[in-house]
Structure formats: C-alpha cells, structure tokens
Amino acid sequence: LMHLFALEAYLKTSGKLPVNVRFLIEGEEETGSEHLGEFVRRYKDRLKADVMVLTDTANLDLGLPSLTYRLRGLVDAIVEVRTLDHPVHSGMWGGPTLDALSALNKILARLTTADGKIAIPDFYEGIQPVVGLEKERLRALPFEEKKFLKEVGAVESLQLAGERDFSVYERIWCRPACAILGIDAPQVAKTSNQIVEWARAKVSIRIVSGMDPEKSRQRLCDFLKQDPPCGAQVTVKPGTAGRPWKVDPVGPAYEAAARALKKGFGRDAVFIGCGGSIPFVEPLTHEFGGIPALLIGLEDPFCNAHGENESLYLPDWQKGMESAVWLFSERIV
C-alpha cells in the first residue's frame, strides 16, 4: 500500500512516472516460497528489472529510516521420542523406566552450551566474520538494554542470552540462534500418574551468511538422533532449509535509497540486518543477475509482527510514502 499510494500521488501531480514499475505479489513467503524460483524463471522476460524494492522489514526505531542488507536463513526439524508402546503407572514402573518427555528434554538440552553457543559439531562452518565498515556501522547503532527488554516484552528478571562475545545486534543478525518452537506431549490438565510414552518437539535454527542450509539441516537432524537417552527410539523429520542473504550496500541504488529516505524521514538512514528470513529475496536477485535489493523498513520494534494486535505506526507509514515518491525520482542505476 505504501508504494501504491506513492504511485498514485506521483501520477496525480506529474501525470507519469520517470521509471517503469512492476508489482510482484507473492503468497508463499511464510511457507518458504517453494514455487517462486520456477515462477520467476518461467516469466523472467516479463519480470525483468534493474532494482528490486521490498518493504517487509523493520526500522531500527520509530522515525529512524533503515535499509536492511542482510537476512538470516532458517533450518528446522521435528524430533519425536518414544520409550514405550503405551503409558504405564508411574508408581509401579517409575525409576527404571524413562518417560519420553524426560528423554526429549535431555536431547533438547544438548543443543546449546552454557555460554550460548550451538553445540552441534561443525555447525559454524563457513560463517563470514563481521569486519571493517560493517563492524563500525553496527557499533554506531543506538542500543539500550532496558529499552530492548521492554520492546520484547521480557519479564522483569530476564537477562540477555546468547554469545556474550558479540553485541546484541550481532547475535540477532550475524550469528546462528536456536529455538524450541513447540512441544507435543500430554496436556498438564489431562495428565494422570502415568509415564509418558511419547513426546515431540520442533527445533528451529536461524543460520547466517556463509552457512550452507542443506548441510546445516543435516547436521541438526544427525545431532538430534545421536546417542538417544537410555536407548529411546528417536525419529527426526527434516523441515525447512532456507538460505541466508547478504549484500554489500554500496552503489547507485543504495545511495539513491538513502537519499530518498533522508528526504522522507528528515534524518539519515542507517544500515541494519534482520534476524528473520524472507525466502524470495535470494532467488529473485539471483535470477536477475544479482540486481540490487532495496529492503526498506516500515515496521517498528513495537509492531508485534506475527503476534496478537500487530500494528503499524502511522507517522512512519506517511514518511515511508514520501520516501517512496522521492525514490521514484532518483537515478538508481
């Protein structure tokens, strides 16, 4: 909508656009964009472009225009543990008989070390270190720990997790991160004094530039299956293997975007990463020969993306529209 309103304003005042614009509406983004590559290859001549503009990322803060130049990838798997063919009485059998939920918890607890690192062997293979100008830009970004914890909705006692040798922004944008997304087991309200015979969990790991998604997923699956507690039966179903994306944000397109954002927001833009994944960015830029991808922020830290009461900060929406108008006027190639 931001770009549609900007186009409308431009056409009403100038009568025509100084550039050709094509809109691509993609409906598989939340499920990995499995068919997008084939679609783009089939209609490549009709979709061909010099620059891709995407507004599906966040600004670092309210009123602070941000250009995203790196995204994490994603691998995941579902691990299921079974110790019995049926539940049994915990008083009669408890002790020598391991319940499946305890076995699952032991497996999940192995995934990370006490200092926040992922414990899977060779998992960090290929990671590109943050150096030079990128390191300087990250260090220059504003950060307040109390504000961060408030924005995420942390309980009062919660402390920051992850690798403490890296800044918070590096942990979110530039380092792998493991999360347990869900566990299936008997509900607490419906339990009785029985030993649980099965349990399963979905494990997700965000990966970063330089890491191979297929290798990372295989390493995750192999790690989950190895050395099952007390010989429990462990099965693993591989899931997503999404590629990370990173670009060096230099050249006419990025300079033009920075100028347009400054005019729209009234302050200099910052260059940031995104800890999430947008699966179609890499295949689109690749199919068109590595064209610049301008990931212009619109969300804000308080928008509660993917949660209840997801919101949009209207003043930034207005500034985003103004920036888009200026972007259409820029020489971006």
Rank of each mutant, 00 (worst) to 15 (best):
L220T: 01
L220H: 11
L220M: 02
D222A: 11
D222M: 14
L224F: 05
K225C: 10
K225T: 00
Q226P: 15
Q226T: 09
D227K: 11
D227E: 11
P228S: 10
P229S: 14
P229N: 12
C230K: 05
C230Q: 14
C230A: 08
G231S: 11
A232G: 02
V234G: 08
T235W: 09
K237S: 14
P238T: 01
P238R: 00
P238Q: 07
G239P: 11
G239R: 05
G239H: 14
T240E: 15
T240W: 10
A241Y: 04
A241M: 01
A241D: 07
G242V: 06
G242P: 12
R243H: 08
R243G: 04
P244K: 14
P244A: 10
K246Y: 12
K246V: 05
V247H: 12
V247W: 06
D248W: 07
D248Q: 08
D248T: 07
P249M: 03
V250N: 12
G251T: 00
G251I: 02
P252F: 12
P252W: 13
P252V: 05
A253Y: 02
A253R: 06
Y254D: 13
Y254R: 08
Y254Q: 09
Y254P: 12
E255G: 15
E255T: 02
A256V: 13
A256W: 01
A257Y: 08
A257M: 12
A258L: 11
A258V: 10
A258S: 11
A258N: 11
A260V: 05
A260F: 04
A260Y: 06
A260E: 08
L261S: 04
L261T: 02
L261V: 02
K262I: 00
K262W: 02
K263G: 01
K263S: 13
G264A: 15
G264H: 10
F265A: 03
G266W: 00
G266D: 00
G266R: 04
G266M: 05
R267A: 03
D268I: 00
D268R: 09
D268H: 04
D268S: 08
A269G: 15
A269N: 05
A269L: 08
A269H: 07
F271Y: 13
I272M: 02
I272H: 07
I272T: 09
G273R: 04
G273N: 04
G273C: 01
G273T: 09
G275D: 11
G276Y: 08
G276T: 08
G276E: 12
S277V: 03
S277E: 09
S277R: 06
S277Y: 00
